[in-house]
Simulated scan of single mutants.
Amino acid sequence: MSIAEEVNGIGELIRTKFPDSQVHRFQEPDLPMAREFAIHLKQEIRRSEARSHTVIERQYRVHYYSELAEDAVVSMGAFSRYVMNETTSIPVPDGTGIVRPESFTIDLAEKLESGLLRCSGTMVVFSREAVVMAEYQKIDKVEIRTTIN
């Protein structure tokens, strides 16, 4: 699954939990408003699990903007519980593959120049991809000949 599909899936989770919130993907809004979310890719790590699969670990940073520190932290906590306890995987548009959240870390709410507060959370997700293998031509026909000596 591509990074864009995962970000869209995380956006769907946010819209399910907070239907009246706006979600920004890959960048923060120029002028953030209260009750908005922003999703960023923080890091991607690929490891070889076997000769046939690669494990992909991606870390996404989720920002929530609010006018009150308590609201920012409580809302991010509610989203964290929703992701970790109420869902089993991130929605995949085409239904292929499974992306499951492994952990969710919440940071302290920080004050922005505009006066809003931003609470950040880091979501770690895992998925697997098949390794492209060379295809060989199959043996079409096998004949056995024996001779008696």
Rank of each mutant, 00 (worst) to 15 (best):
H24Y: 14
F26Q: 11
F26G: 00
Q27Y: 09
E28Q: 05
P29S: 00
P29V: 02
P29T: 04
D30T: 09
P32E: 03
P32D: 02
M33Q: 11
R35N: 14
R35E: 11
R35L: 08
R35Y: 12
E36V: 00
F37P: 08
F37E: 04
I39A: 05
H40G: 02
L41A: 04
Q43G: 02
E44P: 09
I45Q: 10
R46Y: 01
R46Q: 11
S48P: 09
S48C: 07
S48F: 10
E49S: 05
E49P: 00
R51Y: 14
S52Q: 13
S52K: 14
H53T: 10
T54R: 12
V55D: 05
V55R: 12
I56P: 03
I56T: 09
Q59P: 01
Q59T: 09
Q59L: 11
Y60C: 02
Y60E: 04
V62S: 03
Y65D: 00
Y65H: 00
S66C: 02
E67Y: 01
L68W: 07
L68D: 11
L68G: 00
A69W: 03
E70A: 03
D71G: 00
V73A: 06
M76H: 08
M76E: 04
M76K: 04
G77S: 12
G77C: 01
A78N: 01
F79L: 15
F79V: 05
S80I: 03
S80F: 01
R81F: 11
R81C: 08
Y82A: 12
E86G: 01
E86L: 15
E86M: 15
T87A: 04
I90G: 10
V92A: 01
P93H: 11
D94A: 11
D94H: 13
G95N: 11
G97Y: 06
I98G: 02
I98F: 04
V99M: 12
V99Q: 10
R100K: 14
E102V: 11
S103K: 12
S103M: 10
F104C: 13
F104A: 12
T105M: 15
T105S: 13
I106P: 10
I106Q: 07
D107G: 12
A109L: 07
A109I: 01
L112I: 06
L112Q: 11
L112F: 07
L112D: 05
E113S: 15
G115L: 09
G115Q: 06
L117D: 06
R118P: 00
R118C: 08
R118G: 01
S120W: 02
S120Q: 13
T122I: 12
M123E: 07
V124D: 06
F126G: 01
S127E: 06
A130T: 10
A130V: 07
